[in-house]
């Protein structure tokens, strides 16, 4: 199964990045063979709509499941439309969460876990533009 995990760098032993739209890397992992592709997230620094752009990139990779920490409303809408299952609240290394997912320890989410602009960091949240 093709699984996308948000990660803070490009290796399987890196920590899960708790943000979806503004994570550093997407690791696209084949959960059977543990072969993976590390895709840098070009949406990390975008002005707005990072979740949408990131979801589109992930959908075009043909993944079936996304595992992350939190996901916002626009991202979840896009991922759901692409028929991708979303698992939130994940932490630990990418390798660990893949293992947990295989053993059925992670649960799917159906709603956003954070509001828009969550991953933008201090001083930019809710900015007027």
């Amino acid at each position: 199964m093709k699984i996308c995990v948000t990660a803070s760098s490009g290796s399987l032993d890196t920590q899960v990045d708790p943000r979806f739209g503004r994570c550093q890397y997407f690791l696209i992992v084949d959960s059977d063979t543990m072969d993976f592709e590390a895709m840098p997230n070009i949406s990390a620094d975008t002005m707005g709509g990072a979740g949408i752009q990131a979801a589109q990139a992930v959908a075009n990779k043909g993944v079936e499941v996304v595992i992350t920490g939190n996901v916002g409303p626009n991202a979840i809408q896009t991922l759901s439309a692409a028929g991708i299952k979303i698992i939130t609240g994940a932490f630990g290394t990418v390798r660990e969460v893949i293992k947990m997912h295989k053993s059925g320890q992670l649960k799917e989410t159906s709603g956003a876990t954070v509001s828009e602009h969550f991953g933008m960091g201090m001083g930019r949240k809710g900015g007027r533009f």
């Binding site: 949406s43 975008t46 002005m47 707005g48 709509g49 990072a50 949408i52 752009q53 979801a55 589109q56 959908a59 075009n60 896009t78 439309a81 692409a82 028929g83």
Partner: peptide
């Protein structure tokens, strides 16, 4: 520039 579109899998 504002990511108002998502295009994937014929959607």
């Amino acid at each position: 520039e504002f990511n108002a579109f998502a295009v994937f899998n014929k959607q």
